[in-house]
């Protein structure tokens, strides 16, 4: 028998054996399918369903992310304005001092902290008037006025104010040299130029993330 013939017969034999083994696998897999779908390669199905579910969950998280938002870093006193994936404004600001004020009777206490979390711009004002709350008089050692109009103060909040709830505002300041420090009563103070940009860019309903 010549070598080529021998080689050919060996290959045919080997292919035949492989084919028989393959057929065996096929029959075994069909038999296992008959036992119920949950027993067919459960790991593989589990793997696919987990991957699919995890992809859906990631998309759910992405859908919760605001597209355009104001980001306030209270630790570094910086405000960023994001439009889509672009950051269009970076401004030095002043956030809450975290200090505590108690009235002389010891009944009321204020913690001057900028609130953290997600908020919404609820109002916008040009040339805002500050209606001074009780703590402002207590801090200054002045009696709390009974007449509402005595609480009104103009100029203190700068040219614009953007309210984000519970009496908190993003507003201007007379003390620009203190920008970059935690010195406010909880509001966010900005320089005039940056405040103007923010006021003109951000609509009511815009999201703020403060951390």
């Amino acid at each position: 028998m010549d070598k080529n013939k021998l080689l050919r017969i060996s290959l045919y034999l080997f292919s035949f054996l492989i084919a028989i083994e393959g057929a065996g696998h096929l029959i075994a897999s069909k038999a296992s399918k008959k036992n119920g779908p949950e027993h067919v390669k459960p790991e593989k199905r589990l793997l696919h369903s987990l991957r699919f579910e995890n992809t859906l969950l990631r998309r759910k998280i992405e859908a919760l992310q605001p597209k355009d938002y104001i980001l306030v870093d209270t630790s570094r006193n910086v405000l960023y304005l994001h439009k889509g994936k672009r950051m269009i404004l970076r401004a030095t600001i002043s956030c809450g001092s975290g200090s505590i004020l108690t009235d002389s009777a010891g009944k009321r206490e204020w913690v001057f902290e900028t609130p953290r979390g997600e908020f919404t711009i609820q109002s916008k004002y040009e040339k805002p008037t500050w209606i001074k709350p009780d703590w402002a008089f207590i801090e200054e050692g002045k009696p709390i006025p009974k007449n509402f109009m005595e609480r009104a103060e103009t100029g203190t909040l700068g040219d614009y104010a953007l309210g984000f709830g519970n009496g908190y505002f993003i507003h201007g300041t007379l003390y620009t040299r203190l920008l970059g420090r935690n010195i406010t009563h909880g509001c966010i103070r900005m320089g005039d130029r940056d405040l103007k940009t923010l006021y003109e860019t951000v609509p009511i309903g815009a999201k703020i993330l403060i951390f």
Binding site: E140, G141, K142, L178
Partner: peptide, 23 residues
């Protein structure tokens, strides 16, 4: 510890003492 603000006396500079609680 958070700083406790002492109410100012009349005529005292409001910015003479800045009670900041920072990083």
């Amino acid at each position: 510890k958070r700083i406790k603000i002492k109410p100012k006396k009349i005529g005292e500079d409001a910015l003479s003492d800045i009670p900041a609680f920072e990083v």
